[in-house]
Amino acid sequence: MEPKIELFRPTDADDRLRTEIHRVFHDVARLGGAIGYLSPPSKPTTDVWLEDALAAVRAGDAALVVALVDGSVAATGLWRRRPEPVFAHTADVEKVMAHPTSRGLGLGRLLMTALIDSARRAGIETLALGVRGNNHGAIELYEEFGFTVWGRLPNVIEVDNERFDDIRMALTLGHGPDVVLRGSTPGGPGSSPRRPLSRRPPMSEVGEGVSGRR
């Protein structure tokens, strides 16, 4: 019999939801899943994360999507608006994961579809996320939805004595007709002119200055 899969968008949590969310987080982390924990988190830790996420949901600054398999929590995903006013239309995707016993059911695609649709309805212009460099399956999933790599911090994610790249990806959802896309062109608030070539120090001097301060 095929499992029954449903998507649930909670705005508050009862004891059962807290317990089942913790089970997913704990078991994914126990198997080394790249979800931000070096060891399986305690229930108080996941409870705090859940309450914080749901507070943002109720404020209109986030959306939590939970996948139920046969009535039990099997996967999670969240987008959360960035708090700074200059990033009000940008949100980060986080905690996209499926319980080890529920992998292979397509839950990741279901979650990402729901998160992207929700973010677009909320007026989010850009979705961003970070993923561990060796998590190729997740990177491929995000690429299927149009996410592209915009940056890479090499060997900064620490797992004991191992170091991994921090891959940064983003998806543009669209902009309103009145939005002016300046990118990195001159002009606009906070603009400053380039320094004349004659005033730029040679790179050899810059290197010596940096070395001298160490």
Rank of each mutant, 00 (worst) to 15 (best):
G36H: 01
H136W: 07
D166T: 01
R16E: 15
G174A: 08
P154E: 15
L127F: 00
P10I: 02
A34V: 05
D61W: 05
G33R: 07
T148P: 00
T172I: 10
S192A: 14
L64E: 05
T11Q: 15
E94D: 07
R152Q: 11
R120H: 13
L31E: 15
T11R: 13
P3Q: 07
G77A: 05
S184H: 12
R199A: 08
I167H: 14
G188E: 10
L111Y: 05
G36P: 04
K4G: 10
R30V: 07
G174P: 09
R120L: 13
V66N: 13
V48S: 14
P154G: 03
A128L: 15
F8D: 09
F25G: 06
A170F: 11
R80A: 12
G108N: 04
M1D: 06
R58V: 06
S192F: 06
R182C: 06
L68P: 08
M203W: 02
G176R: 01
H136T: 10
V65G: 04
P83E: 04
M97I: 12
E6P: 08
R199I: 03
G32M: 02
M203Q: 08
L50N: 03
R103T: 04
H89Q: 05
R132F: 08
E144A: 10
S211A: 09
M97K: 13
A63P: 02
R182P: 10
I116S: 11
G137T: 14
L50G: 03
A34M: 12
E2Y: 03
R30F: 07
I139V: 10
L68H: 00
L7A: 05
T90D: 04
P85D: 01
S192K: 10
I5Y: 14
E2F: 07
I124T: 03
V180R: 07
I157H: 09
H99F: 10
D52H: 13
F147D: 01
R109Q: 02
E140W: 11
H22M: 02
A62N: 08
E158P: 07
S102Y: 12
D160M: 06
V66G: 13
E205F: 00
G209K: 11
R80M: 13
V24Y: 10
K95N: 05
L171Q: 08
M112K: 05
F8V: 14
D27E: 15
D47K: 09
G36V: 04
G190C: 05
D27N: 12
A55P: 12
P10L: 01
F145A: 04
P44Y: 15
L171I: 10
L141K: 09
R103V: 00
G33P: 02
M97Y: 12
R168Q: 14
T76N: 06
P85M: 07
A67W: 03
G137A: 15
R82K: 15
